[in-house]
Design a protein around this nucleic acid. Structure first.
Lengths: 192, 192
DNA sequence: GTCTATAATTTGATAGAC
DNA sequence: GTCTATCAAATTATAGAC
């Protein structure tokens, strides 16, 4: 067992506690207790509770960008549909392995309603998906493998489906997510 | 200007404050101040802050059930597609007129992660949509107007789209929601 | 880097008068 | 139904010793 840095320890513990109890009901006392250190020791590493919340936010946002899951350079005319389906399912799989993900994101969304900085970052991520999907579909159309006319609308639909799957998974719904994704992608590829 | 009941006044003010500042950062002092009464006066009407949150929750849940928007008895073979589209757009319109709706629901979702009672009620509502859509599609299939084979999958997709539209509207995304809904419904009706 | 001790503030909630 | 006054508890954050 390698000793991780205190900084990383704090973020890991805070992530779990924030998910379980929420930002507001997780006090610095709770975090320090769980870390087996005292409150002032915790304050030595982070100047405030908000700075922990922010550090966590930045770390999470790095790992959920469109480019993290979809690599446009790996797409060809031959593998297009399969690759598209697989890359989307990677997101689903990632979320399903992190039981706290949805709870945490729900709270950052709430923060976003009150502080534009959070909202803007989250909006940028979702816009990354939308424009990413659009570029991918444009490439597909140029290969004559995508037949939908309205690529922009298709990209919006895909973004909403991806976001919706995250939400529903996090809420414990046992939907047939794989099938929903596959069918949505196939319908768009096939065109009207 | 008719004088509403104090009870209703409190819920109206609390709804706005909860949306603007969140449950935790909205204190009973803030609510009473906004109502131009004192804190103990507020406590006379509601025994606790949680009881306000609960009363609001019950009121909201009444107004977002599937049956509130979709009346299956009004569907015929002739009007099926148009009626389906219109009823879905009614939800979208309702949400767009209430600027606080998404913020409030985001918080009840967060509560649901910590107290099953909230989660169960929200899940019931979403399940109401899913089974409602399925029944509607079944009726459509019996009229030979719906041609999708997998009605259950279609119902799940529709539920996710409805929920996703609420989320995205609330976050200020200017998506082409009407078109997304229309196209989704038409694709399902048309079948593979 | 970690500790003890404590300041400063806010909160949800109540007693009791009118 | 509304008020003044107040409580007990909890919270974020800091001073200062080791």
């Amino acid at each position: 067992m390698v000793k991780k840095s205190t900084y990383a320890d704090i973020l890991e513990i805070a992530y779990r506690l924030f998910a379980e109890h929420g930002f507001d009901k997780t006090s610095m006392s709770m975090i320090s207790k769980e870390l087996k250190m005292t409150k002032p020791a915790l304050y030595y590493h982070f100047p405030s509770k908000n700075s922990i919340i922010d550090a966590l936010f930045n770390e999470i946002c790095q790992s959920i960008r469109f480019e993290y899951f979809f690599d446009i350079t790996s797409y060809t005319k031959q593998n297009f549909e399969q690759q598209f389906i697989n890359d989307g399912l990677k997101i689903l799989a990632a979320q399903q392995t992190d039981e706290y993900y949805a709870r945490i994101m729900n709270q950052y969304q709430a923060l976003g309603y009150r502080e534009v900085h959070y909202a803007q970052t989250l909006i940028n991520i979702l816009e990354g998906f939308q424009t990413g999907f659009e570029k991918l579909l444009q490439y597909g159309a140029s290969c004559e493998v995508v037949h939908t006319q309205d690529l922009s609308l298709a990209a919006q639909t895909l973004t909403m489906i991806i976001d919706g799957m995250d939400n529903f998974v996090g809420y414990g719904f046992h939907y047939r997510y794989e099938d929903i994704w596959i069918k949505t992608v196939q319908t768009i590829i096939k065109g009207d």
